[in-house]
């Protein structure tokens, strides 16, 4: 049977020099989390192991399996400045803004 593809919910924050993505990925194996930036897309993947077969489900309200979510980041992100950490079922990805996306102050000369 094909494993269920799960889309983790996300909170997105913006600060002066970065964007922060916070994703709920309960039960994920830290070693198998992948964060990839390529072709203006950021991809987040992870896997949460289901319980072993010796356990018979009596009732089920949520699924565990493969997590997948894709974000379009365009030119706003400096791909060299991406950090991710996983703690207690929550994945936090910090994306440094490219110079293009940082707030700029432009001085206007008056003649």
């Amino acid at each position: 049977m094909e494993k269920t593809k799960l889309v983790p919910p996300v909170d997105v924050y913006e600060t002066g020099d970065k964007y922060i993505l916070v994703l709920d990925m309960p039960g994920a194996d830290k070693e198998k989390i992948e964060v990839t930036a390529e072709n203006e897309k950021l991809t987040v993947k992870g896997t949460a192991a289901v319980v072993s077969e010796e356990w018979t489900p009596l009732s089920s309200e949520f699924a565990l399996g493969d997590y997948f979510r894709e974000f379009t980041i365009g030119h706003k992100i400096d791909q060299e400045k991406i950090d991710a950490k996983y703690d207690n079922g929550v994945l936090t990805v910090e994306l440094g803004k490219s110079e293009l996306a940082k707030p700029r102050k432009i001085e206007v000369k008056l003649n």
């Binding site: 319980v51 356990w55 489900p57 009732s59 949520f62």
Partner: peptide, 12 residues
């Protein structure tokens, strides 16, 4: 959400 399981030696 919660999942309930029955096992040989217990419940989860």
């Amino acid at each position: 959400p919660a999942n309930l399981y029955d096992g040989k030696d217990g419940y989860l």
